[in-house]
Design a protein around this nucleic acid. Sequence first.
DNA 1: CCGCATCCATTATGATACTG
DNA 2: CAGTATCATAATGGATGCGG
Lengths: 126, 126
Amino acid sequence: MGNPLLTEYSDRPEVDALVNELIGCVADKWTLLLLEALEEVEKLRFTELARAIPGISQKMLTQTLRQMERDGLVDRTAHATIPPRVDYRLTPLGHSLGEAFCGVWLWAEKHIDTVHQARTAFDSRD
Amino acid sequence: MGNPLLTEYSDRPEVDALVNELIGCVADKWTLLLLEALEEVEKLRFTELARAIPGISQKMLTQTLRQMERDGLVDRTAHATIPPRVDYRLTPLGHSLGEAFCGVWLWAEKHIDTVHQARTAFDSRD
DNA sequence: CCGCATCCATTATGATACTG
DNA sequence: CAGTATCATAATGGATGCGG
């Protein structure tokens, strides 16, 4: 084998690049939180999502939902009523991604104390 | 139960907020790619990491490594040699996070074609 | 040389106001 | 209600410099 730095987890480097790009899209803070919210409740409308995710701005909510819709992760259903009503729900693909992230949630929940201790220790160094 | 929007995956809302904050830190593009690189090779120095992660800037590499070090995810070892040498490796905690993210990698690798098809379909609408 | 801090241009994000 | 448009601010990338 050549340089170990060039070793990747698969044998197809060109696929790795695409996977990394996809990871970059999907490993977004808001995407994760939207996944969490929609795993929880199954079907939510725009303002409900905004409330379910404290700290998100309307802009990022719209933008992230659009991207997830484009990637086939969420399904957007607009009802032509007054007032308008738009429902978002996970597609099977989005649901499978949510399950893949489940391990990360469990990790965060389990190790949050350890992380905060590490931070305190780090900040009190030097 | 009250408003389902307030339902979270645990029964301790204050913990949920902290977990979300932690998710926000950890669900970073560069953090993920660094985890991947260090899962692969076990011990890497600064410039090796820079080469292993195409597209990262030195600034973000430094910044992300600092944050991961502060969070107890990576261990930094500086050798007082000339030329200087700094090795980074995952701590057990960082390794456990890498394992938690493993499912996301497998998901990305498995569904990348589906995502690209969804994008193409979305872009050719309207 | 290597690790990394600093300056500046570019981009991403947030706050607010406004429309169908 | 569900966004879009606009502007202010923060995050990021690129180039450079500097100590070890």
